[in-house]
Design a binder for these strands. Structure first.
Length: 108
DNA sequence: CTATTGACTACCG
DNA sequence: TCGGTAGCCAATA
């Protein structure tokens, strides 16, 4: 088991619970963790999510923009993964984002 | 303990 | 509508 770094582990837990073909935002995760101001910290945790079973590609910013795609192996990997789940990406932005958005505070 | 960084978000002109 | 600035939080050096 990895470190129980609380905040990190919390972020991973939520990211893993994101259903297939859905996405969520950093702020939504942070809010569910009880720290709505810690969206940046969530993104920081995602940076460290490499090597873990965390579908970090399902986590984007509040407007559905793939801001973290540069952190993946390839610049297109994040978009390819999302498209593979049935999503549509256009210019690093998720199309119909509202329809694929998954809010842990409401769905979970 | 202080300073810097960052996959954010909200506000302002 | 768009670009820039400010605020907040957690981790790292």
């Amino acid at each position: 088991m990895p470190q129980s770094s609380n905040f990190f582990d919390q972020c991973y837990a939520i990211a893993r619970q994101v259903p297939y073909g859905r996405v969520t935002s950093y702020g939504a995760i942070a809010k569910y963790l009880g720290a709505p101001r810690s969206a940046r910290a969530v993104g920081y945790a995602m940076t460290a999510s490499h090597g873990k079973d965390v579908p970090a590609h399902r986590v984007v910013n509040r407007i559905g923009l793939l801001t973290g795609k540069h952190h993946f192996e390839g610049i297109n990997l994040m978009q390819q993964l999302l498209e593979n789940e049935g999503l549509t990406i256009k210019n690093n932005q998720i199309q119909n984002f509202e329809s694929v958005f998954w809010d842990p505070a409401k769905e979970l």
